[in-house]
Structures are given as structure tokens and as C-alpha cells.
Design a protein around this nucleic acid. Structure first.
Lengths: 93, 93
DNA sequence: CCGCCGTTAGTCTTATATAAATAATTTTAA
DNA sequence: TTAAAATTATTTATATAAGACTAACGGCGG
């Protein structure tokens, strides 16, 4: 479970900048950035602040459905060629 | 959500000492103690280690309210006879 | 082109999470 | 009741989480 990627995913879904999210969460943009990049390991207390700012519970933060996980792990193993095929397929939906 | 209390609750359910849990989780007993007492704010990475050692997912670690709800709704449907059996059982814990 | 603005990245410092070793306390068994 | 064993608490030291400030990197109107 990649905490940084998950934060980034939620942040971008809300169209927040690092600065804005950090601000309303009450943490520094520097640190948020490092956490998102996986360069730092956030504490639960601070993650709670971030989750509050994102309007999500810690439980839901960690509750990535199995389908999603299956998908993302499947996708991460694609060859570039396969990735292109997938992109075409998605467009056709 | 009191992370320390939650860890302690799960640790004691498994009849682990701080030392033992810290050992198999790969963290120090000193730190585990401080986290349980709320004197330190554990990082997600370390909490993940603890959860692994406890055989529980992070999602379930934070999924406390549902369990409680399941319990209370289950309890509310007991017959008097079942309620007595439950009381005996609780004493035996 | 040029400065302005929003966003992300880098640096340097401080606060605190975490560890190793040891002491104190509680529990257990004789 | 007491010594040993198990558990929890302290002390001291280090690694790293976290913050303040500044720089670099694009867009965009003038």
C-alpha cells in the first residue's frame, strides 16, 4: 500500500494543489511533497489531518477495493505495447 | 481514534507482551510502549509492521466502529438465556 | 519577450519518532 | 516469603519526520 500515491490520488481528484491541501490540513507543503514522493513516512496523526482535509476517514483511506488493487497491479505489469492497446480500448468505451 | 489503545487492545487479545509484539513486528519495545501510551505518534510504515505482526490489515485496524456496531446489534437480539451465557463467557475472558 | 503567478522541488534547521541498554516493577513459582 | 522470570518503565542517543524559507519550472496576459 503506497500511502503517498494514495494521498496524491485523492488530492488530485479534489483538484487541490500540494500547497492548498497542506494548508487546510495544517502541515507543510514540503512535507506533503516528500510524503507523496515516498521520501518520508507520515505519522498517523498527520495522516489523520490530511484525511480530514480530504473529507475521508482513515478507514476509507486504507480501504482500496480489491478490484482496484487487482486492476492497478495488473496495469503496472503491462509492456508499453500492451499499455497502448489498453489506452485505445479505454477510449472506445 | 486512539491508535495506542487500539494496538494495546489487539496485542492483549493475542496475549502478546510488548516485548514479543515489538520483536516480531521489528520495532523496539520502548517505542511500542510510548505509542501505546499516546506519548508518540507512530508512522504509517511502522504501524503497518505492527499490523502485520498482529495479522490484521490497516483497513481493519481503523475499522473499529463497524465491529462495535456489529457487537451491539448482535447483543440486542439475544434471548435472556443467551444473554446469561454471554455474561458467563465474558467473565471467563 | 518579459515579468507575474501558481505549483512543485531543494536546502537547511528543528522537533520528535525510534532504538539500545538498563533499571524498576509485577508476576510466578518454590 | 522470596528469588527468578517476565513485563513494563527510564535514560540516553540517533535517525528521520516535519517546518520555514527559497529556488526552479512551467503557463499566460501584457
Amino acid at each position: 500500500m503506497d500511502v503517498g500515491a494514495r494521498i496524491k490520488q485523492l488530492r488530485e481528484k479534489n483538484k487541490f494543489s500540494q500547497n492548498y491541501l497542506a494548508d487546510i490540513a495544517g502541515i507543510s507543503q514540503t512535507h506533503l511533497r516528500r510524503v507523496e514522493l515516498g521520501e518520508a513516512d507520515i505519522t498517523v496523526g498527520h495522516l489523520q489531518l490530511v484525511c480530514d482535509a480530504l473529507g475521508i476517514s482513515l478507514k476509507d483511506f486504507f480501504n482500496i477495493s480489491n478490484e482496484q488493487e487487482e486492476l492497478s497491479s495488473a496495469i503496472s505489469n503491462l509492456t508499453p505495447k500492451q499499455r497502448n492497446l489498453l489506452l485505445e480500448f479505454l477510449k472506445s468505451l
